[in-house]
Nucleic acid binder design. Structure first.
Length: 308
DNA sequence: AAGACGAAAGTGGTTGA
DNA sequence: TCAACAACTTTCGTCTT
């Protein structure tokens, strides 16, 4: 009995990702959340002032970084504490509370705006919830360390998202982030580097294989072609053809070759557009792949097959 | 005619003195 | 801080299918 392979109902991709913590199954190709056990009936979470917080905030809320203070706030004292204090102490108390209020409202305001923007960009790119959560966490940390100062809020948001994508092995290119957020590519790259360095986030160099699934589905290539492309990538990595080169270029070249081998030819132009690189780059990588992995025979084989 | 190929010049980013 | 450098892009002419 053949086991049923789960497919994404949206794009029928097979590259599904099970996020155990959140109980979600996510399609890595199109970002669709396929199974989400926690049906979300929650009310609108935004609070506009502390009185609304009283009515809108629910006790026992899950701690989340998409909420500006992770759903948990700290305040300097309550009025009832005042009875315990003397005059000088009392003044100090008010001063502290005033400052606390000022600082927290400034950060709060920033976070509310930023997280709204973050959600917008995230949903535009159809990113899974787990990535959005991670990005929110990164952004929150960045704000707390004052890393946003001197930079536009949007660019830090984009940088945080970019970092979160890489950490969750669902990389998006800088171009995609740029399109979604309206921030220049180099600006995103800069804030991304800055933020990750300052926060000491370790980011693995992105793996070309992570791009394959998404590019392949955009080009409507078969699953066999996909796995062949990944196979090629692995070989290429072993002989260190991949180091130092842009991961998208390598991924697209591998995909291009693999499509040729399986007789599902796509033009260099098509692959280049999807991957966000130029034909020239594909050609260069493609040439290297052919030379180093002697794949010519595989391609010739499929050509002969076609003639018959 | 379209796609593939390759050369040449330009760009943005990294590295090492 | 500056220059050398590698990767990648843009542009354009030529070859192949």
């Amino acid at each position: 009995m053949a086991e049923m392979v789960k497919k994404c109902p949206e794009c029928s991709g097979i590259n599904l990702f099970w996020n155990r913590e959140k109980g979600e199954i996510i399609c890595r190709d199109c970002g669709l959340v396929i199974e989400d056990k926690m049906v979300d009936f929650t009310q609108e979470w935004r609070e506009f002032d502390s009185s609304q917080a009283e009515t809108k905030r629910r006790t026992g809320a899950p701690m989340t970084f998409t909420q500006y203070d992770q759903g948990l706030g700290t305040e300097v004292g309550q009025k009832s504490d005042l009875f315990k204090l003397g005059g000088a102490e009392r003044n100090k108390f008010f001063r502290l509370r005033k400052w606390q209020y000022r600082i927290s409202t400034a950060i709060e305001r920033n976070l509310k705006l930023a997280l709204a923007e973050l959600k917008r960009v995230s949903s535009f790119l159809k990113l899974p919830k787990s990535v959005e959560e991670e990005a929110s966490r990164i952004y929150t940390l960045a704000v707390q360390r004052g890393l946003v100062r001197g930079r536009s809020m949007e660019s830090v948001v984009a940088g945080a998202l970019y970092a979160a994508c890489r950490r969750h092995e669902v990389p998006r290119t800088l171009d995609e982030l740029s399109e979604a957020s309206g921030i220049e590519k180099k600006e995103i790259g800069r804030t991304y580097r800055f933020v990750t360095r300052e926060l000491g986030l370790t980011i693995l160099p992105s793996n070309p294989a992570d791009y394959i699934a998404r590019f392949a589905s955009a080009l409507k290539l078969s699953a066999e072609t996909q796995s062949k492309a990944i196979e090629i990538l692995e070989k290429a990595q072993k002989i260190e053809l991949t180091s130092g080169r842009g991961p998208t270029g390598i991924a697209s070249a591998a995909l291009y070759v693999s499509a040729l081998i399986h007789g599902e030819k796509r033009t260099q132009r098509e692959v280049a557009d999807v991957a966000g690189v130029t034909e020239v780059t594909i050609r260069n990588r493609y040439k290297e792949l052919l030379e180093e992995l002697n794949l010519e025979k595989d391609i010739k084989k499929t050509k002969k097959k076609k003639k018959r």
